[in-house]
Design a protein around this nucleic acid. Structure first.
Lengths: 242, 242
DNA sequence: TTTATAATACTTGTATACAAGTATCCTAGT
DNA sequence: ACTAGGATACTTGTATACAAGTATTATAAA
């Protein structure tokens, strides 16, 4: 395998991470980006050799990726499932489910501090755009939503978020990198939509929030198309299933 | 530690399971039942000695339990979080969230086969009651809901279910065992409620479904109180937090 | 008595070794 | 030519070994 020496996952996000976490994140990116094609069979020994680590962190990574539905652990080897279009829609089903639930809780509590925090994050996003830093922008985008979710202090909703976040993160990273190269002016719209979201929370306007969520969803649809493009760029021959 | 030689998790459910899975299930039961008190600090070496296995399957188990929010992995040792009353409520928030979502999909498709399957499961539950088999009853109860959820073929909703199922399973097991000893006539009500659920799906009656879901939730509230009792029986001194 | 420091006994993370099981391929026999 | 059977080279699951880091405890000095 002509393994590219480049890493897809931002290395600076892994400053304090263990080898296992590094492998997990990198493998996830390679699967979602399509660099590792769906249907491929991964062997622990081979991966260990490729990553130049022992089998321990590899096993750890495979367990995590299996829980994320990206691979399927079988008797002999782990087969790569990858993300189909249907999966991406389903992830956003879950996000809509979560965030509407969260909003119902938010309208009952004081959100002044949250709004302040979110405003700060949007400012950061603007800076990231200004300096063409796709990874930083992605980071703040994810942080935005995570901040909202954490506010309601619901450990099991947070658990769901934690389980879907890594895949979301990878999707957003890949999409944003592609956009910074091609559709730079998309970002003003994204910023605007986030500000709409903040306003909805601030005024506790349920309709505005729903509207903003759907807008965000539409944005994401765009992201998905971008991702598809970037996948086609990265991988040699993607066979479009179904 | 005066480790009881008895296993809490049904051994026959582990016929083909690896050592890692066995440890995971047993540890989970011990934490949820309160046999391992919340706040306790678990060390991999100690657990390995207690279970008479190596650290590998123990590590595996701890990772899983951490993802389920039952323990928190720290630098030195894993601290047991356990289930507080709030957590149990939150689990059922998630279940309500999932099952209402699922129902919205169910009303759009043909559910004849599903209804047949569910009826079969309820028959099995009746037999389990007749023979006072709490574990078998629990198994069918969980299977009932999982069957419904699997029907809509939504991999990410299924993922959420998979993430909450183990804890649910433990809760139900402990609760049902207690009930078979004390509140035997509860089961006619539970059966009735499941039949109501089936009817709601069959007639695609949204209101009936909501009603049945809430009834189920109330049932569960009872379950929770039972669990609390059984916890107090099992563990010497539970300190009621908050 | 109290504080600073060093030795010690723990902890986790990773690498390696071993055992049991499975697919593959090659050979022998018909 | 084709099938049966066995050797072989894989696979995962578990045990063990080792390295690096952290809390604790004991000791020594003020």
């Amino acid at each position: 395998m002509t393994e590219s020496t480049e890493f897809l996952y931002p290395q600076k996000w892994l400053s304090k991470a263990s080898t296992g976490d590094r492998v997990t994140c990198e493998l996830r990116m390679q699967i979602i980006s399509g660099r590792i094609e769906s249907g491929a069979i991964l062997s622990e020994n081979k991966l260990a050799a490729d990553f130049e680590v022992s089998r321990s962190p590899i096993r750890e990574a495979l367990k995590v990726l299996a829980a994320e539905n990206l691979i399927r652990l079988e008797r002999m080897g782990a087969v790569v499932i990858g993300l189909k279009e249907k999966d991406i829609e389903e992830i956003y089903d879950v996000r809509l489910l979560i965030e509407t639930f969260v909003f119902e809780r938010l309208v009952k509590i004081d959100t002044k501090e949250l709004v302040r925090e979110l405003s700060k994050i949007v400012e950061m996003m603007k800076i990231a755009i200004k300096y063409r830093d796709a990874d930083e922008f992605s980071y703040q985008d994810i942080l935005f939503h995570e901040t909202i979710i954490r506010t309601i202090n619901h450990s099991y909703v947070l658990m769901i978020w934690n389980n879907t976040r890594p895949v979301m993160e990878s999707l957003i990273l890949l999409s944003m990198r592609a956009r910074f190269k091609e559709k730079y002016d998309d970002f003003t719209r994204i910023i605007k939509n986030h500000q709409l979201y903040i306003e909805a929370i601030d005024t506790k306007d349920r309709n505005l929030m729903i509207q903003s969520l759907h807008q965000n969803f539409d944005d994401v649809q765009g992201k998905v198309e971008d991702l598809w493009m970037s996948q086609q760029m990265l991988s040699k021959g993607v066979d479009p299933e179904k």
